[in-house]
Amino acid sequence: AWPGFADRVQRAVDRCRGRGLEPVFHYHLGTDVETEAEADRLLELTDVAVCLDTGHLTLAGGDPATALRKWAGRIGQVHLKDADLAAHRRVREAGGGLTEVVAAGGFCALGTGDVDFAGVLRGLDEIGYTGWLVIEQDAPAQGQDLDRIRADQRGNRRWLEEALP
């Protein structure tokens, strides 16, 4: 199904560009393009830029620091997102999906999970990336604890201030 899928993505990319927009493809757990290999295949078959999402790529078994070097000329946006591999593994072993991974804290505050942010930030600097760095912090699907969300975002900001002098 790859040729047809890639053709549809490319047509959408071309339509966006025809309207003066530059699209970026965001691979994601729970979709048809989750893994580094699947993102590689899409990039091979299209000319769309990719959103380097550190959290989703880590939980899908990829290495964001390695992928960013491979995708250097194709990265159109970066989502800095941490990931807890142990939480992901527990949920998957129990038969849960993405909603349960999020609820179990599979995407945690920056610097508290398993993403190699030192390697990612160093790699972005090495490839001369100057685009958007989006801090993405998922809140559990059931209920919205705004105090926790604000505290997580304040913590993420502090972590970034220390990580990006």
Rank of each mutant, 00 (worst) to 15 (best):
L68V: 05
D53V: 04
G76A: 05
R74C: 03
T54D: 12
L59D: 12
R74G: 03
L52F: 03
D47C: 01
G73V: 07
V48A: 11
L52V: 02
G62H: 01
A72C: 02
L45M: 07
V48K: 05
L59R: 00
D47F: 07
E93D: 15
H79Q: 15
L80C: 13
D53Y: 01
I75Q: 05
G61A: 07
A83D: 09
G62F: 01
G62W: 06
G73P: 11
R69C: 09
L52Y: 07
A65H: 14
G61R: 01
T46I: 07
V50A: 10
Q77I: 15
G61H: 08
D63H: 08
L85T: 12
E93M: 04
L57M: 08
L68G: 06
C51T: 13
D82T: 14
E93F: 08
L85M: 02
A67Y: 09
G61K: 12
L59M: 12
G62P: 07
W71F: 04
E44C: 10
V50R: 00
Q77A: 15
I75M: 10
V91Q: 11
R90A: 15
T58I: 06
V48P: 00
G73I: 14
H56K: 08
V78Q: 04
L52G: 00
A65D: 06
I75F: 07
A87E: 09
D63C: 14
L59G: 09
T54S: 08
A49L: 14
L43Q: 06
D84V: 02
A87I: 11
A67W: 02
R90D: 13
L42Q: 00
T58Y: 01
V78Y: 04
V91K: 10
L80K: 05
L68D: 00
A49V: 10
D84N: 15
V91D: 14
L43E: 07
D53P: 01
A87R: 14
P64N: 03
A83W: 07
L85C: 08
A94H: 09
H79A: 10
C51D: 13
L57K: 02
A65K: 10
V91P: 14
G73S: 07
R90K: 11
D63I: 07
D63G: 08
A86V: 14
G76K: 03
E44A: 15
V78M: 08
L45N: 02
R69D: 15
A72F: 06
A86P: 11
C51A: 15
A83L: 10
G55A: 13
A94L: 13
E93N: 11
V48H: 04
G61L: 10
V48R: 05
D53M: 04
G76N: 06
L52S: 02
L57I: 14
L43A: 00
A86C: 03
H79M: 11
D82N: 09
D82I: 12
V78G: 02
V78H: 02
A60R: 00
G73R: 01
V50W: 06
D82F: 03
E93P: 08
